[in-house]
Amino acid sequence: MPECELSAAVAGGIAQADAGTALHHAPTGAIREHLTAHPEAADARRGPRAGREAVARAVGPKDAGAGVTPA
C-alpha cells in the first residue's frame, strides 16, 4: 500500500492494515521473473534472493528499522 494511502486510511480511523498479501506476491513474482530470465538457473538459492530483495523493496524505508534487508 502506498504511503499516502496508508496515511489516509489512518486519518480515516483505520487502525490495522494487512500487508501480508503484498509481501506474499513480491517474492513470488520476483522468483518467477528470475527463473524466466535465467532458465538455466539450477541453483535454487538465487531465485529466493530475488524474492527477499522484492520483499525488502515492498516494505520500503518506512520499516527499514524492522530488520528486513536484502540478502
Rank of each mutant, 00 (worst) to 15 (best):
S7C: 14
S7E: 15
S7K: 15
S7G: 14
S7R: 15
S7P: 12
S7T: 15
A8T: 04
A8I: 04
A8F: 05
A8N: 05
A9R: 08
A9M: 13
V10T: 07
V10K: 08
V10F: 06
V10R: 09
V10M: 08
A11D: 09
G12P: 04
G12H: 12
G13A: 02
G13L: 01
G13H: 01
G13T: 03
G13R: 02
G13Q: 01
I14S: 07
I14P: 02
I14T: 07
I14D: 06
I14E: 08
A15Q: 12
A17W: 06
A17F: 09
A17H: 12
A17M: 14
A17E: 11
D18P: 15
D18V: 14
D18I: 09
D18S: 15
A19M: 12
A19V: 06
A19G: 12
A19I: 09
G20F: 09
G20K: 13
G20H: 07
T21H: 15
T21E: 14
T21L: 13
T21K: 15
T21R: 15
T21Y: 11
T21C: 13
A22K: 05
A22Y: 08
A22N: 12
L23S: 07
L23Y: 07
L23A: 07
L23H: 07
H24T: 15
H24A: 13
H24E: 07
H25T: 09
H25E: 10
H25V: 09
H25L: 11
H25I: 09
A26H: 00
A26C: 02
A26P: 00
P27R: 01
P27A: 04
P27F: 01
T28Y: 09
T28A: 08
T28F: 11
T28H: 08
G29H: 02
G29L: 03
G29T: 02
G29E: 03
G29I: 03
G29N: 04
A30F: 00
A30R: 00
A30L: 01
I31T: 10
I31E: 09
I31K: 11
I31W: 10
R32V: 08
R32C: 08
R32L: 08
E33T: 04
E33L: 04
E33W: 01
H34N: 06
H34G: 04
L35A: 03
L35V: 02
T36Y: 04
T36A: 06
T36K: 04
T36C: 06
A37Y: 06
A37V: 07
A37P: 04
A37G: 11
H38N: 13
H38M: 10
H38Y: 13
H38P: 05
H38E: 07
H38V: 06
P39L: 00
E40T: 03
E40M: 02
E40A: 04
E40C: 02
